[in-house]
């Protein structure tokens, strides 16, 4: 329990948000990817967040969602993994397309550009908020270090 813990907490949140931003960038970049088979088609990716617990040394442990209610141990957020969306792909009949399969179909990724844009803004705002939290914690720590000097 100290101010330094706040740096760990908001640091973990910042890295989680940048993972999210990363997947968003990847999704947007591949929004128009085309392939000639269902298996090879790009699918929208998104990270799964979970609250993390820490032991006294500040190491993070993953936790089941049901364990979160345990009181007294709080330590940021961690990315459990990145999952691919199972929304149906867009199948298009385009026999003239160079990527068309033998039946004349091409497969487009299931990325929803609007969703990704909203995700991007949300991730960058969350990142910003956590930077502010860390900055305030820094000010508080500096103030503590100067206690009794002024």
């Amino acid at each position: 329990m100290s101010l330094f813990n706040i740096f760990n907490i908001s640091g973990s949140a910042m890295s989680a948000q940048s993972v999210r931003l990363n997947t968003t960038a990847s999704n947007l970049a591949n929004a128009n990817s085309v392939s000639s088979s269902i298996d090879e088609t790009y699918r929208a990716r998104s990270p799964i967040f979970a609250a993390a617990l820490s032991d006294a040394s500040g190491k993070y442990h993953g936790t089941e969602l049901t364990n979160q209610t345990q009181a007294g141990q709080s330590a940021g957020v961690k990315v459990l993994g990145v999952v691919e969306s199972d929304k149906p792909l867009q199948i298009e009949y385009a026999p003239n397309h160079p990527m068309a399969d033998k039946n004349g179909y091409i497969y487009r990724s299931n990325v929803n550009t609007m969703e990704e844009m909203a995700n991007m803004i949300s991730a960058s705002r969350s990142y910003q908020t956590n930077v502010q939290v860390a900055d305030t914690a820094k000010t508080m720590t500096q103030r503590l270090l100067r206690l009794g000097q002024g």
Binding site: I6, F49, A50, S74, V77, V133, A137
Partner: peptide, 25 residues
């Protein structure tokens, strides 16, 4: 000390603003 503790708690809430199933404390 308690203000420090509270700052940590709130920082944790903010960090978990996008975590599914997280309950603010």
């Amino acid at each position: 000390g308690i203000r420090t503790q509270r700052a940590e708690l709130i920082a944790n809430n903010i960090a978990n603003a996008d975590t599914p199933g997280y309950k603010a404390k």
